[in-house]
Design a protein around this nucleic acid. Sequence first.
DNA 1: GTCCTGAGCGCG
DNA 2: AAAGCGCGCTCAGGAC
Length: 571
Amino acid sequence: MWRTNPVRWARKNVGVHVILAPAPDGRVVLRPLDARGRRTGPDTTVARPELAREAQRIEAADRPRWVWRRAADWYPGFLAAGVRLERCHDLTLCGTALEGSAFAATTGYTSAFAARTEVADPAGTLPQLPPAEGQGFLFEDAPDHGPGADDLERELTAQLAAIAGSSQPGRLRLLCAADSAGALVAAEMQAAGIPWDAATHEALLAEQLGPRPRGLERPARLEEKANELRDLLGAPKLNPDSPQELMRALHRAGIEAHTTRAWELREFTHPAIQPLLEYKKLARLLAANGWAWLDAWVRDGRFRPEYVVAGVVTGRWASRGGGALQIPKQVRAAARALPGHKLVVADASQLEPRVLAALARDDAMAAAAEDSDLYARIAAAGFGGDRAKAKVALLGAIYGATTGESGRLLPQLAKLYPRAVGYVEQAARDGERGLTVTTHLGRSSPPPSERWHHLQRSTTAEEQRRADAVARDRGRFTRNFVVQGTAAEWAECWMAELRLRLRRLAARGFRGELVYFLHDEVMVHAEESVAEACADAIRDAAAAARRLLFGQAPVEFPVSIAVVDSYDQAK
DNA sequence: GTCCTGAGCGCG
DNA sequence: AAAGCGCGCTCAGGAC
């Protein structure tokens, strides 16, 4: 309370929350509310051309939490107008998380705007080209109809009540704040884009595939490989892109593969295998990240993917357009800092095992996590120093491996870390029984489908076998869910904290911009002189994320940071 | 012609 | 013969 400035509260229209909603006449309503969602003043209604400036004025005065149906609808318009906002409450993201959360199950809350009620891409037009710079006018994507301020106020009140009435209000409040901050980061990163040097990318393509073909024919080097393959397999008309044709040709050549997957082909000894693997690699590069990709996704030196916050069941982010979360190592050299700038690339080392140690409150594993190389410490503790074994055992425990080396090593791991292994085993058993499981901050797994229940009640032996297999599949899913989902929460908090620190640096004239996020990895594009300050911000943010999620739990989350000119130089 | 699915492979 | 999680994207090829 001592931080509250009484002068602030004396002013009119002051709100801790400000609802932003379309008015029936096409203008936009701004409604101030207090921390508990009660109105603190009259609505303001502004025309859209005035919205950015008015919001900026309120932002500067009050730093409210902006409450909107979806940040993704509104915030890009603000960014296009050069207005950045610090905090928000995304009713759709929060509604989805709260409605599913076991922590809030007894509150009876249901979301008015849950994501699954949305019509995703009704026109079916994806992938869309990203809008060109300066094209379109502000807020053209923002809704001009649908739920108004009253609806949003009702929904906000319901969500705040669900949080307050839940079994873990602190955690759910943080979950909502993290997803909402994530929505802001996502829009900001999309607006910024990854600095992408098309010339470097084209040089990489030319080097590996040959010059860009005029039409749709294969590039020269790829066609050469295809011909080599046709000769070696004695199949002059083979189209190696067709799995069926390829399979027949392989069989005729005496290669009895069951699939045409690279890992299986590697097991055969035949002169055609090596060229085939090379062909597949190059064909993949051409199809996924070739000239067409460059034309479609890189504009004005930036690759601007759309991020979908919590787009994965576990709460991980997904992306739309350009395969932003699958940029192959082959082309990462094209992600290149502008002159006088650096890319500060950071990744959280061994994030999931560390998350498991904290989740399960496993002191022994937490002790291993004091080391920057957790696998090495585990290897020393109980795998005769064999780091590879320790890693396979631990990842197998998190993913649910039952057979192979990983399965064999599990008992040994369980002896060393009974709490950690017990934690994921419990999640697996819950999943097998059809229960939901929940991450640290309260994101719950989806319940099993009706069909799943039906299958579990089956009577014949054959159906029983099938039901058991499906139950085990679900157990592996829920086992992984708690770890992957909590890791995603840590990462989202990491980004939210990093964003605040970068804003503070920017306020002092040191510009560093978050431009990329990949599950446990972030990239900041910064002026050279600011790079080290950004690296410090990244480390501080990681420590802050740990405190937010796990308080004083003695588990370290080290980040490894590379200050580089291009993405391929990191790790 | 359009729509959908599976195979395959990229990422963590 | 890929054991073991989560995705997005492209292509081929079948369904319509």
